[in-house]
């Protein structure tokens, strides 16, 4: 049994969207915390503390997704010559992670422009 056909690969297919879920939840939670604690009134350089916290959460998840995508690419390359189901699993993981990266980018984009606590 190779590693690319282990049940772990099922997890790899959904890992990207688990990170998206984490990003989404933490962004919503951080916004609520920040607004509750008045972070929007505390400036850190050109942005408020609230916006900075959100950007950090967002960027952290994007970085994690970037690393995962890199791993998926490598795994896919290593498994091109293998038969099914390894090829299917690695392709699905790669596609799913790419979609999750786009989803995280898109849903977090309003952080850069929209007012935080109004």
């Amino acid at each position: 049994m190779t590693g690319r056909t282990s049940p772990f690969m099922l997890l790899a297919i959904v890992a990207g969207f688990i990170i998206w879920s984490s990003a989404f939840t933490l962004l919503y939670a951080a916004l609520s915390f920040g607004c509750s604690l008045g972070w929007q009134s505390v400036d850190v350089g050109p942005v408020s503390l609230n916006r900075l916290a959100l950007i950090l959460v967002w960027a952290g998840h994007l970085a994690a997704l970037g690393l995962l995508l890199q791993w998926c690419l490598k795994t896919r390359r290593d498994n091109v010559s293998r038969g099914q189901p390894a090829r299917f699993m690695t392709t699905a993981a790669l596609a799913s992670t790419s979609c999750a990266l786009f989803a995280t980018l898109w849903t977090g984009l309003p952080i850069t422009v929209v007012s935080t606590c109004m």
Binding site: F24, L31, C35, L54, T107, V114, S115, C117, M118
Partner: peptide, 11 residues
């Protein structure tokens, strides 16, 4: 808040 609405609107 508008930003929270924007998250859910985007999704």
């Amino acid at each position: 808040p508008h930003l929270a609405q924007a998250f859910f609107s985007a999704a």
